[in-house]
């Protein structure tokens, strides 16, 4: 799978093919000699139409036979959190989809940066032209509501409810994959990153290597688990379970190129419609992980949803670390040698 030349770049830092860091046009091609591999697939999770139904979580648990777990990842615990409607808490070994719920409010006398005249604060948004969610879905009143469906007014406050279904990002430069010492983690022909459970020896290195905190160890099992992008379903020509179950097409599955184009159009539509704070997360291939296979449309800063604002794959700095490790080892040798110089006592 991996050639000698790719091995040396981590030592030398000489990385013309962006094997450690930077944009990669064909991430599957990088790890296979098979020119005829399928296109890279992924998820576009459009949180602006997420209704927080958790159908994705349930479908994922059912299909992948994941054990019940509490909000701290412990198995067979109910674990109610009091954190809005979120009792899943986080992604982990037993939750491969996690719907985040963020309740927000603001005073209505704030200068409204959105549509309408200054006096119209909080009034229903004028939607002259219903926006297009994506090409296949005809524009309608329903889609019009989808521009800010999570927002309403309550007394003197405007409130909104942000919901977002988080998942493994299947990074272009996956920290978990880079650091796995057994070769248990691998890149599939679809560009996703999957754990081979019969190889994993539970060393746990991938857990702190992931800049998103996705992969985790199942305590009673010892091995690590995470989203496989339903590798077993993909090989049978099916969509991943979560995308199949999503009732609002908040989770869209497809070829990554196509999803990116769709996401750009959706962002433009939302911005034209005056939806504040809309941004794509993980779409940019020049970011710290070379772009991701599962990217998002968010309505607020990433950290509001528990996502890192500027993730960087740790392997970017590995050549520098190896150089300093070599110098440190040489220093230890030097100290030992000089300890033998001089007097016998």
């Amino acid at each position: 799978m991996t050639s000698i030349s790719s091995l040396s770049s981590a030592f030398t830092g000489d990385d013309p093919g962006n094997r450690l860091f930077g944009p990669v046009p064909d991430v599957v091609g990088q790890s296979t000699s098979d020119a005829d591999h399928p296109a890279r697939v992924g998820f576009f999770t459009d949180t602006s139409v997420c209704i927080g139904c958790k159908a994705c979580e349930v479908a994922c648990k059912e299909w992948n036979t994941l054990p019940m777990d509490g909000a701290d990842g412990r198995v067979d615990v109910l674990g109610l959190t009091g954190e809005s409607y979120d009792n899943t808490g986080m992604l982990g070994a037993n939750s491969w989809r996690h719907v985040a719920f963020v309740e927000q409010s603001r005073a209505v006398d704030l200068p409204m940066p959105t549509v309408g005249r200054p006096g119209d604060v909080g009034s229903p948004r004028p939607l002259a032209e219903p926006p297009v969610v994506h090409a296949e879905v005809p524009a309608s009143a329903t889609t019009a509501e989808q521009t800010a469906p999570q927002q309403t007014q309550s007394g003197d406050r405007e409130i909104r409810w942000l919901m977002s279904s988080d998942v493994c990002k299947h990074c272009t430069h996956a920290g978990c994959l880079d650091v796995c010492p057994t070769g248990s983690l691998f890149r599939t022909e679809y560009g996703s990153v999957v754990v081979q459970e019969d190889i994993c020896n539970g060393c746990g290195y991938c857990v702190p290597a992931c800049p998103y905190g996705v992969i985790d160890q199942r305590e009673d099992d010892g091995r690590v688990f995470k989203c496989t992008l339903c590798y077993d379903r993909l090989t049978d020509g099916l969509m991943p379970a979560c995308a199949t179950a999503c009732p609002t097409e908040s989770i869209q599955f497809g070829d990554l190129d196509e999803l990116q184009a769709r996401a750009d159009a959706r962002l433009a539509a939302l911005q034209a419609d005056g939806v504040e704070g809309a941004r794509l997360y993980g779409r940019d291939e020049s970011d710290g992980v070379g772009g991701v296979g599962a990217f998002f449309l968010l309505l607020d800063e990433p950290e509001v949803y528990g996502l890192p604002p500027d993730p960087v794959v740790t392997t970017r700095d590995l050549p520098s670390m190896w150089r300093h490790a070599a110098a440190g080892a040489a220093m230890a040798f030097g100290l030992a040698l000089s300890a033998f110089a001089g007097h016998r006592r």
């Binding site: 991996t2 091995l7 040396s8 981590a10 030592f11 450690l20 880079d178 650091v179 796995c180 010492p181 057994t182 070769g183 248990s184 190889i199 994993c200 020896n201 539970g202 060393c203 746990g204 290195y205 160890q217 099992d221 010892g222 091995r223 690590v224 392997t315 590995l318 670390m321 190896w322």
Partner: peptide, 23 residues
């Protein structure tokens, strides 16, 4: 002893990866 599956410790020597300091 720290491994989740100690009986599989020899899997550490299954591959050599310079991107993995543990390998």
């Amino acid at each position: 002893h720290d491994l989740g599956r100690p009986e599989r410790f020899l899997n550490m020597l299954r591959v050599l990866k310079v991107t993995s300091p543990l390998s």
